[in-house]
Every structure is written in structure tokens, then in C-alpha cells.
Amino acid sequence: MDKIKVLFVDDDMVLGNIVTLALEDSGYEVHYQTSLAGIKMVVKEMQPDIMVLDVEIGAKNGIEVVPELKAIVPETPVLIVSSHVESENVMKALEAGAVTYLKKPFEIVELLAYIQRFVKTFRVKGLEVGRLHLKAEESLLMKGDETVRKLSTLECKLLKMLALNLNRTVTREQIELELWGDYVTESSEQSLNNYIAKLRKYLVEDKRLELATIPKVGYKLSDGE
């Protein structure tokens, strides 16, 4: 497999150089820059596997550019790093499309763990789900050439996780961590219930598929084989 490509944008050059060297030593291909200048063109040309953005980048805000970058590479996870730990910033980042918010100062091993975790999930471009097919890059659930459903980002992540663990139980804790990272709230439980209910409706296109609730544990997607 080709090297995982990391786009890292942070105007702290000392930190930037340390992170770049650490990632390269760990086998990643890294493009590091200190500003958001030309960032859209960089993303188009590089097609990164993950993007790591600071919040304050010069006079600009990294969170605000996330939707624009996700429009170019919708399947690429975005990791926000910042010393600003206010819950308002965290919520804005997650609502903009970031997968998690890593607070500075952080240990390099912590950043590496997040990159490995999210790239592993997002690098899967397509999955067979029984007689259906999940086109992860476009968040489309297909049946042959017919679109069954255009999924939301979280619906797609959830179905992908269940499909990658076909015929195996996935715990609620694992799912919540995958969908909301370290920012699971009291409302997350009901949100997960709603997403499961929606996926069940979509999956009726293949009668062999069963999305079962494992009481007090989690969920299991089975293909009837």
C-alpha cells in the first residue's frame, strides 16, 4: 500500500517541524505548511488521506475552511488541533465536519494514534454489504446501478463500521467513539438509536441482511450466511 498522506497546517513552525519529522519517521508522507494560502489547490493535487489543521492559522481560522476542504475530498477525515479548549470551539469543529479535536499540547504518540485510527476507517473506499454496495467516498448505498440512499456522513461511518465487522458484534462504546470521538454526550445514545433505525430501513433492500441489537452490548450486522 502507498504511504499514507498527511496534510498538516499550523503556523507554529517549531511544532510543525517536530510533527513533520515524527510523522515521516513513522512512514507517513507529509505536506506541511504554515498558512492556508493555496490550501484548496494543495488538497486537490495531493488528495491527502487525512488533514490536520490548527484553529488559529495567522489571521485565519482553520475550522472555517473545513467545509470547503471536505467539499473537495469528502471522505478525508479532518483533525483539528488547538490550545483553545473552549467547548464552543470544539462543537464548531465537529459541526464543520472534523472527526475530533486534539488539545495542545499533545504527545506525538497521541497524534499518531488518532491518525492511524481515522485513516484505517476512512481509507476503505467501497464495501460489499450483502447484495448491496457502499460507495464510501460518495456516501451512497447502491443496489446494482441503482442508488438506494444517499447517506449522511455519520450514517455512512456507522454502516461502514458495521460492514467491516460483518457477523461480529460491535459495542455501543466502540460505535460512539467512532462517531463522536471523545465528545460523546447524553444525546449521543438517542442519536445512535435513530441512526440504527434508519439503517434498518435502508437495508431492507436485501432481505438477507439483519441488523440485530445485542442487549446491553451493541449491534451486529449479519448477512444470513
Rank of each mutant, 00 (worst) to 15 (best):
G58F: 08
A96Y: 00
L159V: 00
Y28L: 08
K40Q: 12
A136I: 12
E189H: 15
G130E: 00
N193G: 13
N165M: 03
L166S: 09
S187N: 11
G181V: 05
H84F: 14
E176F: 07
V119Q: 06
K157V: 15
M1E: 12
T147L: 12
Y28Q: 06
A212R: 08
I175M: 03
K207G: 05
E24C: 14
K5P: 02
V85Y: 11
L203M: 07
L7R: 04
E29S: 10
D206Y: 06
N17L: 15
L221C: 09
D223M: 12
Q33L: 04
E128P: 09
R200H: 02
L36R: 04
T76N: 03
D223P: 09
V204D: 10
N17W: 12
K70A: 08
V30P: 02
V65R: 07
L111Q: 02
V78L: 06
S187W: 13
V85W: 13
G97F: 02
K216M: 10
Y32G: 06
E86D: 15
Q174F: 11
R200L: 02
Q190E: 11
F106V: 00
I4R: 05
I57M: 01
I18Q: 12
K60L: 12
G62K: 01
M41V: 13
V109Q: 12
G224F: 07
G38W: 01
F8T: 01
